[in-house]
Design a protein around this nucleic acid. Structure first.
Lengths: 106, 106
DNA sequence: ATAATTACTTACATAAAGTAACTAACTTAC
DNA sequence: GTAAGTTAGTTACTTTATGTAAGTAATTAT
């Protein structure tokens, strides 16, 4: 009885973006390549879930992982072209939040 | 040690949008007012969670609930001005999905 | 030898979501 | 008038996701 089905591609995109933490990780990586511990402390995600999310995002082709064998090892996460293509979307959320979300919300 | 903190308003907005099902509910309501059972079957959410989400979205001022005392009762959910203001964002996700998500993904 | 660093992983606890049956209020069919 | 149907939920219970805190591997510094 439901006339208008939801486009599966839209649904897939929404599932990626709307997974907990994913948006903040991508937003954070728009500032340039970053290491695990930086992302972890900046957005306040647990290491367990960050590790999981970065793997998923790598599989989706949104995030790229690079190893620099220094001491201690440095691993940098950055956005691929596909990841960077999400920037306008992130900016939209930013702009929306500035209009519709109150200043004093914690 | 983390220079760039995340803007709390952005974070709040992201938390709303990125909560599971929220995006699809809003997207669905862009087609106009709809009743509980229609949303439920169109996006494939469980009644338990839909009920919860609609309450949250009403509290956020994004969704409006209206009762029509017919038989059986008709209750329509629709977007407020704040809700409608999310349309450009939804369209961006739609456009992004058309470029970056494969056709044959289920 | 001990401690420190980074990028994880593991085991366990808690919170969120899915499932399916149930309810309230009313109407229509038998 | 009793049973069955309708919508918009709720409730109890199960499964899945996330949080927490400790542990690991590789390497260097003290």
């Amino acid at each position: 009885m439901n006339k208008d089905l939801i486009c599966p591609r839209f649904e897939k995109a929404m599932n990626i973006i709307s997974q907990r933490w994913t948006g903040l990780i991508i937003y954070q990586l728009l500032n340039g390549p970053q290491r695990f511990s930086t992302i972890e402390s900046t957005i306040g995600i647990s290491g367990r879930v960050l590790s999981e999310r970065l793997k998923d995002l790598e599989l989706e082709g949104i995030v790229k992982r690079e190893v620099y064998p220094e001491t201690p090892v440095r691993i940098e996460y950055s956005l691929t072209e596909k990841g960077i293509s999400l920037e306008p979307l992130m900016k939209d959320i930013e702009i929306w939040s500035q209009t519709w979300i109150e200043k004093d919300i914690h």
